[in-house]
């Protein structure tokens, strides 16, 4: 079952027109799969992950559908979608440090939250305490205010809270970007543990840190300028990428043991196109070293081998 996203297009309404931040995404996430979603700023990865749980007031769903465990998600209907949020689709936000109401004790806030969703706090409490212990937190944190916890503790509390109702899909949005390296690793391992223990069935880990997501993800999907570029098992993406953008992205990562004083680390020249009025054809064409005439036509996102999809004419 899992998640099935079909031709999803989400635009931002602005005074100057629609910004086509997500322009046709079709992919699946299988049960038990941890999918890393990578790409540079403005590539649409946050838009994609947000639109799966909550469209904010500026976002407009233009086309597409999202199916989770065989049920269509009513993305555009805020009230109807509430039933699925938290219980079926859940989110660990980027801002986990400030995600808790500062003037409520954490336990009280969780109680009010689950009760407002029609669940019993008393029934959930033993499981909540067990999971807090699992991430190394004592049940006492429930009697604390968020200000009394360290950043890492808040992050773990939010991770436990977000997955409390065993959602089918968990979206982890840049969860590690505000943490130091050792905590990053602990958080990443906790995510895997949550999947292994069945707290969540599948997971989308949004990040711009490819090296981190490589360690935990089963598959990695790379986005560029609002389009999907490549999706494949993590090993494949890192070791045998097919899309020129992915290749350049991987080659611009520093490697352990290489002294960059001798060999300069290269980036990708140029900048991604503006999405208010994106160019036709392949959107990476202007920066792509392999570009040729055919690239004026938009390449389809197709499977080039089992479990490996690429949107590039050269890869086919």
């Amino acid at each position: 079952m899992g998640l099935r996203v079909e031709n999803l297009r989400v635009y931002y309404r602005t005074m100057r027109g629609d910004v086509k931040a997500l322009d046709g995404a079709t992919f699946e996430v299988a049960d038990g799969e941890i999918m890393g979603l990578a790409g540079e700023s403005g590539c649409g990865k946050s838009t994609l992950s947000k639109s799966l749980i909550r469209l904010d007031s500026r976002m407009k769903l233009v086309a597409g559908s999202v199916e989770l465990d065989g049920k269509m998600l009513p993305l555009t209907d805020h009230e109807a979608m509430n039933k699925y949020r938290f219980a079926e689709v859940s989110l660990i936000p980027q801002y986990a440090m400030s995600a808790l109401n500062p003037t409520r004790k954490i336990g009280k806030m969780i109680a009010e939250l689950v009760r407002s969703r029609g669940f019993s706090y008393r029934v959930l409490l033993p499981e909540l305490e067990r999971r807090l212990a699992l991430v190394g937190l004592s049940p006492d944190v429930l009697n604390n205010y968020p200000i009394e916890l360290s950043g890492g503790m808040k992050q773990r509390t939010v991770m436990v809270l977000s997955t409390l109702l065993d959602p089918s899909l968990l979206i982890a949005d840049e969860v590690t970007s505000a943490l130091d390296v050792s905590t990053q690793r602990a958080v990443a391992e906790t995510l895997v543990q949550f999947r292994d223990r069945g707290f969540v069935k599948s997971m989308i880990v949004v990040t711009h840190d490819l090296s981190l997501v490589y360690q935990i993800a089963d598959t990695i999907m790379v986005m560029y300028a609002g389009k999907l570029a490549e999706k494949a098992p993590a090993d494949k993406v890192v070791k045998e990428p097919r899309h020129p953008y992915t290749r350049l992205l991987i080659s611009s990562l520093p490697e352990v043991g290489v002294r960059y004083a001798e060999r300069r680390l290269v980036g990708i020249p140029g900048r991604p196109p503006g999405l208010l009025d994106p160019p036709s054809g392949c959107r990476f064409r202007d920066r792509c070293p392999l570009a040729f005439d055919k690239c004026a036509e938009e390449p389809p996102f197709v499977e080039v081998e089992r479990g490996h999809e690429v949107a590039c004419w050269k890869a086919m």
Partner: peptide, 16 residues
């Protein structure tokens, strides 16, 4: 604020 966005993403009724 972040906490309001988070609660909304978790499907909390607007009242709370």
């Amino acid at each position: 604020a972040d906490y309001a966005n988070y609660l909304e993403a978790l499907g909390t009724p607007r009242k709370l």
